[in-house]
Amino acid sequence: MIPESGVPEKSGGFLGVEMTFQDIILALQRYWAGRGCVIEQPYDVEVGAGTMHPATFLRALGPEPWRVAFVQPSRRPADGRYGENPNRLFKHHQYQVILKPSPDDVQEIYLRSLTHLGLDLRRHDIRFLEDDWEAPTLGAWGLGWQVFLDGNEITQFTYFQQVGGLDVRPVSAEITYGLERIAMYIQRKDNVYDVLWAPGVTYGEVRHQEEVEQSAYAFEAATVATLQMMFDACEREAEQLLDRDLILPAYEYVLKCSHLFNLLDARGAVGVAERTSLMARSRALARRCAELYVRRRETLGFPLLRGAAAAATAS
């Protein structure tokens, strides 16, 4: 069992114990594993957010219970800053938690995870500020909050209402920690590249070159025509895979469409109306994936429901 409160803050320095970037990840992994979560691995297709990981997007569908946590490197091409901006990154890291159905004390569970990171919450200003979340390319929306720690947005907290255009029952709570934000705050670093990733190794040493090159790619080198061609090709591939009921492979191509859209956007090649049209195309694919996934799970007899029933009778 996890102790109710984590490491107490020392009075001297800010938090006393300086958690590295990887310490934070390890602490969250341990915490959420202790809350009955499957510790999944990052998805190996480019995504813009942990929500797009099949362990979130698809598992949030249908009646099966599910608890999962994982780190997801998330690419936002438009946020690339050539490694020069202290806060903006082409690729950042989210810590993603899904609790389905959302438990009654989900906020308290979440707050305890912060304590587990060594924060004494009474010494801070914690706010759950309204945030309506929508992912038009996924046909998904939900209501919840951005969680602010002393004015610093560290987490997005969402109760999914629709995913892939389908009403979700039961409702999942999605908790998405911004790992860089939290690390910078805990370590009081003004520049993300100065964050200690591991003892003696900074974030910059691990990731800076990638940021420089990816930014140059996204803003200057990417060929718009090629990206558009790839978007069309991935869309077709997704469709033909869906026609064969190959849901997960199809979904990967949907993710590629989404990433290509983001690249086009970063390149400044997407206008208001085109945005609407490209999003509609992505959404249509995501919806098909969602519908087929639910049907497939139903055919399989919703296996995780059986597991939950067995667990209930056993206890």
Binding site: P86, R123, Y185, D190
Partner: peptide, 19 residues
């Protein structure tokens, strides 16, 4: 603990303004 909270907010605003 107002001092700690103030320090936190100042740090955050600095980052936003730097942006």
């Amino acid at each position: 603990h107002a001092a700690a909270v103030r320090q936190g907010h100042e740090w955050v605003l600095r980052a936003r303004l730097a942006d």
